[in-house]
Simulated assay, not measured.
Amino acid sequence: MSTEGRGRTAGPDGAGPGVDDAIRAMLLLMPRVVGRAKRIPVPEELRSLALAPRHLSLLSCLLFDGPMTVNDLAARLEVAPTTVSLMVGELSRKGVLERREDESDRRRRVVSIAADRHRPISDWLAPGAAAWRRALAPLTPDQRRMFVGTLRAYESALAEERGA
């Protein structure tokens, strides 16, 4: 993957790094970001639960947005409701989540973080949300949209490169 002699010029608008320079910067930055995230210690109360990355996304949604239905969670996580239902069932059996009737529609169930698990989950995940807030708050809505869109495009392209 030689890019020798490329990418030293500014982008097409004359401002900012060329594509190859931006790639170099991201190749240095991404492992540090992932490494830093992996070093966030799991609270003692949660260590025995064998939480996977898919659980962290679900817990982050509930922590950030509060209780919601399985269908709402599925929409936020961009997965099928059956996938969320399986995760909710698993985490409910472990005492991490609670399901209760929706007061406005008794046919629906609302999912929330169990009261005794809320503090350790918040202590664990809230700093990540706070860091994203600090990083994204100074940007304009269009810049935030572009940043999130770029990360989505990268994730999609990486999946294509890996054949996943």
Score class of each variant (00 low, 15 high):
L27S: 08
I40E: 09
D21Q: 14
A75G: 12
R39H: 13
L63T: 03
D21N: 14
A22G: 11
V19S: 07
G16Q: 11
A15Q: 07
G14R: 11
L63P: 01
M26C: 06
G11H: 14
A15N: 08
P31K: 02
A10D: 11
R8Q: 14
L51P: 01
A74K: 08
N71F: 15
A15C: 04
V70H: 02
L28G: 03
G5D: 06
L51N: 05
D65Q: 14
S48Y: 03
P67F: 03
P53T: 07
R24C: 00
A74M: 14
V42D: 01
G11I: 08
L46Y: 04
L77D: 03
L28R: 00
A10Y: 10
A15R: 11
S57F: 09
T69D: 11
G35C: 00
R36A: 13
R47A: 10
T9A: 15
V70P: 01
A22S: 13
G66H: 03
L27E: 05
V42E: 01
P31C: 03
P43Q: 01
H55C: 04
R76C: 12
G66R: 07
P43N: 02
L27W: 02
P17V: 07
V42I: 10
E4C: 12
D13G: 09
P31A: 06
A75F: 09
F64W: 10
G7V: 14
G66D: 04
L56F: 05
P17I: 08
M30G: 02
V34S: 06
R6W: 13
M30H: 09
V70W: 05
I23G: 01
E44C: 06
I40N: 12
T69F: 07
R8K: 08
L29R: 00
A37S: 12
M26N: 03
G66E: 05
I40T: 13
A10V: 10
K38V: 13
L29P: 00
G35E: 00
A50H: 14
L73D: 05
L29A: 02
P67D: 13
E45T: 05
R54V: 06
R32M: 11
G5W: 12
D21H: 13
D21R: 15
L62H: 04
D72Q: 15
S57M: 10
P43S: 02
P43A: 05
R32P: 04
D72T: 12
V34F: 06
V33Y: 00
R36P: 01
D65N: 11
A25C: 13
T9H: 15
K38W: 08
A52C: 04
G11A: 15
L59W: 00
P31F: 03
M68A: 11
M30P: 00
A74H: 14
D65V: 06
R36C: 13
G18W: 02
E44Q: 14
D65A: 15
L56Q: 10
A75C: 08
E45K: 02
L27M: 07
V70A: 13
A52R: 07
V33I: 09
P67T: 05
E45W: 03
V19R: 15
F64S: 12
M68H: 03
P12L: 10
L46Q: 06
L49M: 04
N71L: 13
R32S: 12
D13V: 10
M30D: 04
L29C: 02
P41G: 07
L49N: 01
H55G: 02
L59D: 00
A25I: 07
E45N: 03
S60N: 04
G5I: 06
R47K: 12
C61T: 10
